[in-house]
Amino acid sequence: MKLGFIGLGNMAKAMIGGIIAKGLMGPDDIIGTAATEETCAKVAKKYGIQTLSSNAAVAKEADIIILAVKPQYLKVVIADIMDNVDDSKVIVSIAAGKTINWLQNEFEKQVKIVRVMPNTPALVLEGCSAVCRNDLVDDDNYKFVKELLGSFGKAYTVPESLMDVVVGVSGSSPAYVFMFIEAMADAAVEGGMPRKQAYEFAAQSVLGSAKMVLETGKHPGELKDMVCSPAGTTIDAVHVLEENGFRGTVMNAVTACIEKSRSL
């Protein structure tokens, strides 16, 4: 079994690192290519994988081909590889906004397609990936792809109709969280805390809070109420957030992201 990456950017590197770290596949089982020789050389040196000179070469050798390029480059990539793709290969696309039907039409033939929306916490093996497939992908192939995705986080099957929603709530949301951490740290710095320490306190609080949601099974509102003592400091802070439209702003941001994904 050969796994091929077309595109060796941050997400591809996160996937390769997780797959190798979990022992699902070895470096000898993974090949890839990128737009520049410099990128290929760096990835080959870091992970020990073989890099090839063209998209077509990767598609010819690989059994599972991961399209890890930006949506605007997919047409060109598919044109490069379509003659080397047959019904024995599985195509995995991580591009936002490009549906299975769109991919199928670009290949101009029946192709096994798995569509994935991962996110950047995959870089620290805490990613969250949404997955769906077309009818040509059998259960064994689909299970294996999900195992690969599970090597760097969680992988959940969703209907394709929700993929754009996944982009808003998961794919792009690390950026919102980073802004929140940065804003909290800025306030702590204003209060006199050294910046490095401020980032550590803010980030650890977000990490721990997220873990409480996932592990306790409690509603986020219930967990919030547990922190808000009567006439205490937290409820005053919550009041300010509500007064300034915190929840509505976050909802609007996620909705804008979803709509952008739908328009790609």
Rank of each mutant, 00 (worst) to 15 (best):
G171I: 05
K109I: 00
M179R: 12
L123Q: 11
A59Y: 01
E106W: 04
K109N: 10
I181S: 03
Q110C: 00
I91H: 05
M163A: 08
F152A: 15
F152C: 15
E160M: 00
F180L: 10
A183T: 15
W102Y: 08
N141G: 15
Q50K: 01
D63H: 13
M82R: 14
V114T: 13
D87P: 02
G127F: 03
T99D: 02
A183M: 15
P71H: 00
D140W: 06
Y176I: 04
I94R: 07
K60W: 05
I65G: 10
D83W: 06
I94G: 04
Y156W: 06
Y142Q: 14
A155G: 10
I64L: 05
A130S: 10
A95S: 14
D138V: 10
M117N: 07
N119P: 11
M184P: 01
I100V: 08
V131T: 07
V77W: 03
N105T: 13
V69S: 06
A96S: 07
I81W: 04
E126V: 07
T51S: 03
N101T: 09
S129L: 11
L74I: 14
L136D: 09
I91N: 06
D63N: 14
L149T: 12
M82G: 01
F178C: 11
E126I: 01
A175D: 03
D138T: 13
A59G: 04
V76E: 12
V85D: 12
V145A: 03
K154M: 14
D140L: 13
E61F: 02
D87S: 11
K109A: 06
A175Y: 03
E182D: 10
K89H: 10
A62G: 12
I113L: 15
G153C: 14
D138H: 09
A57S: 13
V131K: 05
S161V: 07
F152H: 14
R115S: 15
M184A: 07
C128R: 01
A175W: 00
F180S: 02
M82Y: 08
L125S: 04
L136K: 14
N105S: 14
I81H: 04
M179D: 05
N84T: 08
S88M: 11
L162H: 13
D87K: 10
I94K: 08
F178I: 10
A130Q: 05
A155P: 10
M184I: 11
V167P: 09
Q50H: 03
Q50R: 05
V92T: 01
D138F: 10
S151E: 15
N141C: 08
L162T: 09
V114P: 12
V111T: 12
E147S: 15
F178T: 08
Y73K: 10
P174E: 07
Y73V: 09
N141M: 12
V166T: 04
A56S: 10
Q50A: 08
A62T: 13
L149E: 12
W102C: 00
L136Q: 12
V116A: 12
K45E: 15
R115G: 09
